[in-house]
């Protein structure tokens, strides 16, 4: 590993001022440490964010939820706010790596790394989350879709830091579900999928969001699958059609983990299962 300066600011504004172009922020470190060890990242300075108070808080905000970027996966999985209100997110946080990893890996890191397979990205996309980006002279909020540009690339500008994620309120008759497909139990997703539905009083879809992971350069929304569900009541055909649309929306590649063909097949299977599950939950059945 190349030598570097280790900085551990105690205030956010101090941290932001240290984030020069040659510096990288350090959260859980489960990805960054390895990239530095392999010299894929060779920063002059590492800015450890863990000494900043309250950056890991999970709290109600504007009727929804604000999750500090430093909240580790294990806290997400254990948070009653998330488990009760945003099940797809809790389900995804529960399967990110081992307990060791979940104790360290943060939601901010999981998103800012911009891995196409990031497990928390798909439920957050499906739940309509936004990212809060802080900088020395203020902060801005951007829809999560706009955060991801490509593998390892985000819309964060130099000097900007992902400080929190916000998820809107979940009113009644909504449901979400996270599904993923792996090779062995401890694995990075071969494909992951999250679905969110909001039903009207008659049980028809008022709003649906479906997100897919590991099937494109970024986690992505399956827009045609979403519109296919719009206004429909649940039945097997609706789920199957949405699944078929999602398979068209996916843009997978072949790699060591799976072929593009298999990934498309799994998009079909997982989307159908996620949609069915989200429907059941929206109707209070699961």
């Amino acid at each position: 590993m190349r030598r570097f300066h280790y900085l551990a600011p105690r205030r956010l504004d101090e941290a932001l001022s240290l984030l020069t172009p040659d510096a990288v922020p350090l959260a859980g470190g489960t990805d960054l440490f390895l990239r530095m060890e392999r010299r894929q990242t060779q920063p002059d300075a590492v800015v450890d964010l863990k000494r900043i108070p309250d950056m890991d808080r999970i709290e109600p905000s504007d009727g929804g939820l604000r999750i500090g970027a430093l909240a580790p996966m294990e806290s997400l999985a254990a948070s009653s706010l998330i488990v009760n209100g945003y099940r797809a997110l809790a389900e995804s946080a529960r399967v990110v790596g081992s307990i060791q990893t979940r104790n360290r890996a943060t939601i901010g890191g999981n998103l800012a790394n911009a891995s196409p397979a990031a497990d928390t990205a798909t439920p957050l996309l499906a739940l309509g989350a936004t990212a809060e980006a802080g900088r020395v002279d203020g902060s801005r909020e951007l829809p999560l879709e706009q955060l991801f540009l490509g593998p390892g690339r985000t819309a964060l500008e130099s000097g900007e830091l992902l400080t929190a994620v916000r998820i809107p309120a979940m009113p009644g008759r909504t449901g979400s579900s996270f599904q993923r497909c792996v090779r062995t139990a401890m694995d990075i997703a071969v494909v992951n999928c999250a679905a969110f539905v909001k039903l009207d009083e008659d049980g028809a879809v008022e709003d649906a969001r479906i997100a897919l992971g590991a099937v494109g350069p970024t986690p992505l929304r399956a827009l045609s699958a979403e519109s296919c569900l719009q206004g429909r009541r649940f039945d097997a055909d609706a789920a199957a059609e949405a699944a078929e649309c999602a398979a068209h929306d996916a843009r997978p590649i072949d790699d060591v983990r799976a072929s593009a063909d298999y990934r498309k097949d799994m998009v079909r299977v997982l989307t159908r299962r996620a949609v069915e599950n989200a429907f059941q939950r929206a109707r209070g059945e699961a």
Partner: peptide, 8 residues
């Protein structure tokens, strides 16, 4: 519980 190999 943490993996000590990935922590400075």
């Amino acid at each position: 519980l943490v993996d000590a190999c990935l922590i400075f």
